[in-house]
Amino acid sequence: MLQCNSVGVTLGGKEILSNVSFTLRQSAFTAVLGKNGSGKSTLAACICAQQKHTGQITLCGSDLASLPPRARAQRIAVLPQNVPTPNITVRELVSLGRNPYIGLSRRMGDEDFAAIDRALTRTDLGAFADRMLPTLSGGERQRAYLAMILAQDADVLLLDEPTTYMDIRAEAEFLQLLRALTAEGKTLLVILHDLTLAAKYADDVLILEHGRQTFCGTKEECLKKCAIESTFSVRRINVDGEVLFLA
């Protein structure tokens, strides 16, 4: 699975990430938590091979940086924090997820069309397939992008704050969908800013503070060690068996 060994980034003499090491558990939902500027997005950029770094990031033993872009894209799919809204249909957007499997001939085969239909069905977007992307709500648009990275058929999904612009209901539905994907064998690394949601949906937690990894382990361990409380200076309460974090 995805493994980071002593990953570090220094930009303009400033250390952005330092000695981050962890291994993702297969078919688990790992939440990456940290205050603003803690290095979460930089870590995501390193995993996507878009940021030069020290240390090594491997996927099933292969160095990610040395993999050709298309081979890497077949194994790890990424949904960045800020995505544009091009004037294309949902189906067209989802079909772009098949790019790693299509050569310069640009022809899509039955397997590609089947993957697109599967992704649309899995995200419950079948009825929206012919809608133009700008006409969708924020939550629907984000689901369309999720369908695109599902069509990519990669085992590891990396999502950077995917629920930022969603209302509470859309956020819950989206995270439930992500949670269900782990049951189907997907391994998820999700950067989240909502601590309560992380405690509710994640299996594992990685906490970054000032570019350093302060905790990495299961959610239960995290709650037991009060790692979230000490990093974010919040208090935890339990309501009806659910964990809530309050400032």
């Binding site: 950029a45 996507c48 872009p69 081979a71 800020n82 790693p100 640009r106």
Partner: peptide, 23 residues
């Protein structure tokens, strides 16, 4: 025209295009 599919992916922004295997 040969590169048009890859060029089209640039409308998703650099980060997404790169994650979809585009140099």
């Amino acid at each position: 025209l040969v590169l048009s599919r890859r060029i089209h992916l640039l409308c998703l922004g650099d980060a997404l295009a790169a994650s979809l295997g585009v140099r």
